[in-house]
Amino acid sequence: MEKIAYRPESLTKTPFTYCPGCLHGIAHRLIAEAIEEQGLTNKMTGVAPVGCSVFAYKFFNFDMAQAAHGRAPAVATGMKRSRPDMHVFTYQGDGDLAAIGTAEIVHAANRGERISVFFVNNAIYGMTGGQMAPTTLPEMKTTTSPYGRKTDDIGFPIRVSELLATLVAPYYIERVSLLSPTDIIKAKKVVSKAIQYNKEGRGFTFVELISTCPTNWGLDPIKSRDWAKDNMLPFFKPGCFRDKGEGVE
């Protein structure tokens, strides 16, 4: 009998600790499947951030590092430079990558570090309890924007993929969503492409995954996805911003 669904070998047996309805598990799985499919499990290593996915180092079944808040791209740089024979990725949330770690991501991208960055954007700080993120939408209420995000006071959400696409060095930048089965199938292809480019040592690859936070948004998982489709996707439009492999500059 053909086995069509199984836990990828590149995930440990440790159960995920994410909230019900959280999409981190799906994002982890997509990355793990891509790594395994390309035969990279034994040559792969990754960096976990600070945020809800802080324990990502426990879930991937190869050597992993855990970094200080926002510093994952710098840590990954040190790892890739010292072990060029290995393949390195970071897994970061929006607070980690787009606020405290802005310098690290911009400069790793600008150097064209031969790493993959998986950026999970759910417009909020999850782990600390639902505070405003640099990606929080205008008028969106969070525990630190209780009257809604006021753009004349705190500015607009940062579109990181577009920002990084202004740089010359990055090899691949694409934004996808995890909000429906169709989107997830598309996301898998994009994640796989990033891992493939990483395997081939092509350059800096960046995948932004639009996600949800049912717990801190105060919505059930299905409503969260609908809300994100209606509110996040118009601002964070999915699309490929750079693919040097396909001639997209």
Binding site: A65, A67, R71, G78, M79, K80, S82, H107
Partner: peptide
Amino acid sequence: AESEVSAINMVYGAAGCGK
């Protein structure tokens, strides 16, 4: 590095690789 902060974190990554 782009900053002192990044430099020490690059050290963390490289040291984590045993070099």
